[in-house]
Design a protein around this nucleic acid. Structure first.
Length: 513
RNA sequence: GCUCCGUUGGUCAAAUGGUUUAAGACGCCACACUUUCUAUGUGGAAUUAAGGGUUCAAUUCCCUUACGGAGUACCA
């Protein structure tokens, strides 16, 4: 009885996919998979002027990186097999161009749409004039037949025909109804009622021969048998028009869900590209180089975020499971996702929480994999055994958020300290420290089986037996090994760098005292 | 301006008329970890925008105001 669920993500290729767009894609994907449905990628490139080279490719790569591949779309992906679909494709609106005109014509023939010949300049003039009078210019029944506008409703059939044959530029406008109240339904927001008198006669077909978004999206959603339209809140004001169009064609409309916006972390408005640069976090999944300006925008991937972390925090922007669980794998999200639990209000983006998610997912990664990544990013590690690096990573990753934090956290496992932190020295080096350290050298040297346990037993035993105080020994010892008062357990460090290096470093510090 | 949508701590948010002195998380602060710490643990401060209703009872329903957001293109 119920049709197969089919949803679409329909970005336009005007640049890199914004993180808000990624969330829209994610919610579509989750909803589709939850209901064993299809997730379709459709490229809305009806505006050639705004087409940007590489944007479509970027969108596909981004979805794949996030692990939310589409089932149907313009190109095949590594993660998804079907690319062209006889029944529903093609998936670029520019390649579907031939489909749209007949639908516009159909509406004209039925008196539900009409030709309009007004130029952009004329319309601008009308808007300005209305504004000057404190009124709002609406191209609908208020004005369309008052004679100031040039369209097939005021022109005679012959005049209209003559203009068309003369090759005059024209657009097709939808004739929106007068004095009706529309009852609209949104899965997230519930019932919405709209007075049709405030609706514009929106352009369905542009003078360049391309449909507008409004026409194309209705035709395509119908032809592609889309059952649920899940999109950003910025489309809510267009919902009435879209419903009217479905009715005009006599088609069953899909269900709609309008997602809340993602807002700036501080200040006002929705999250924009500039915020990332200003506040120091990415707003794009992958880095993007603008083909015209060569300006580079950073991406989550390149900044060291794990895809799982990005997906997890994105899912929680506007949605929550209603339980205390916050860590969700993609599969768990698919299982628990529910549009009914999506919030209505816009969510402010929180970069700190994003980092916290990343820290969490960092702990789940395999040390060896992290080590390989760490090694690849540091020339100094080129010749070091990756297994040794993995052991180091195991000791320090709990205090790291990104792989790029590793070096600062672990350099002393690879190179001897060249200087000593001033504040730390003051704190650690006291009267008699040199004697203590010399004794520690003896203890280290006398530890035959050089293990963490033996070192600990020897040194801690000596400290307690002689009632010296841990701080007096451990702090200068740490300073000698690290060069500062930081890092993991000192015994772990000694074990890792080995007996000879340990002695060398302690001796080096003693010599500076 | 007009239209629509929204409003629980600094942020994300739970609780959809009644064991709520309003969960939890991030962030912040304090303390602890008889050795550091950016980690971990424990604790703490901090919220129902305002005013009216409806009701025995309102964070929850209704109205007004304020504030926020979106839309208002031959852009999507």
């Amino acid at each position: 009885m119920s049709k197969k669920v089919r949803v679409r993500f329909a970005p336009s290729p005007t640049g890199p996919l914004h993180i808000g767009g990624v969330r829209t894609a994610l919610f579509n994907y989750l909803f589709a998979k939850k209901h064993n449905g299809d997730f379709v990628l459709r490229i809305e490139d009806t505006d050639q002027n705004r087409y940007v080279e590489g944007a479509e490719d970027y969108i596909v790569k981004s979805l794949n990186w996030c692990g939310i591949p589409f089932d149907e779309g313009p190109t095949s992906t590594t993660l998804s097999t079907s690319s062209k679909n006889e029944k529903f494709g093609p998936y670029r609106q520019s390649e579907r161009k031939h489909l749209y005109k007949q639908y516009a014509d159909q509406l004209i023939a039925e008196g539900k749409a009409y030709y309009a010949f007004d130029t952009a300049e004329e319309l601008n003039a009308h808007r300005k004039q209305h504004e000057a009078e404190g009124k709002t210019f609406i191209y609908n029944w208020h004005n369309r037949e008052k004679g100031r506008l040039v369209n097939s409703l005021v022109l005679s059939q012959e005049e209209t025909q003559a203009k068309l044959e003369a090759g005059d530029d024209y657009v097709v406008r939808f004739k929106s109804p007068q004095d009706e109240t529309l009852q609209l339904k949104d899965i997230i927001r519930g019932d919405i009622s709209i007075d049709t008198n405030i609706l514009d006669d929106k352009i369905l077909f542009k003078s360049d021969g391309m449909p507008t978004y409004h026409l194309a999206n209705i035709v395509d959603d119908h032809l592609m048998e889309i059952t649920h339209v899940i999109r950003g809140e910025e489309w809510l004001p267009s919902l009435a028009l879209h419903k009217l169009l479905y009715d005009a064609f006599g088609w069953e409309a899909p269900e709609f869900a309008h997602l809340p916006l993602i807002l700036k972390p501080t200040g006002k408005g929705k999250l924009s590209k500039r915020d990332g640069d200003k506040l120091g976090f990415p707003v794009f999944p992958l880095a993007w180089t603008d083909p015209k300006t060569n300006e580079v925008s950073r991406g989550y991937k390149e900044d060291g975020y794990f895809a799982e972390a990005v997906v997890n925090f994105l899912a929680f922007l506007g949605w929550n499971p209603g339980t205390e669980q916050e860590i969700f794998s993609l599969e768990q999200l698919v299982n628990d996702f529910d549009l009914a639990r999506v919030n209505k209000a816009g969510a402010r983006f929180d970069p700190d929480k994003t980092k916290w998610f990343n820290h969490h997912y960092m702990q789940q990664q395999l040390d060896l994999e992290l080590a390989a990544e760490f090694q690849a990013k540091n020339i100094l590690l080129k010749d070091i055994d990756v297994n040794y690096i993995a052991l180091v990573v195991g000791l320090i990753k709990e205090r790291a958020t990104f792989v790029s934090d590793f070096w600062e956290l672990s350099h002393f496992f690879f190179v001897s300290p060249t200087d000593y932190d001033e504040k730390a020295s003051k704190k650690a080096l006291k009267e008699g420290t040199d004697e203590i350290l010399n004794k520690v050298i003896e203890l280290v040297n006398s530890t035959e089986d050089f293990t963490v346990e033996n070192l600990q037993a020897n040194i801690k035993g000596w400290i307690t037996d002689n009632d010296i105080g841990f701080g007096k020994v451990m702090m200068p010892l740490r300073l000698a090994l690290v060069g500062a008062l930081q890092g993991p357990d000192v015994f772990d460090i000694m074990y890792m760098i080995g007996k000879a290096e340990t002695v060398k470093r302690i001796d080096a510090l003693v010599k500076t005292i």
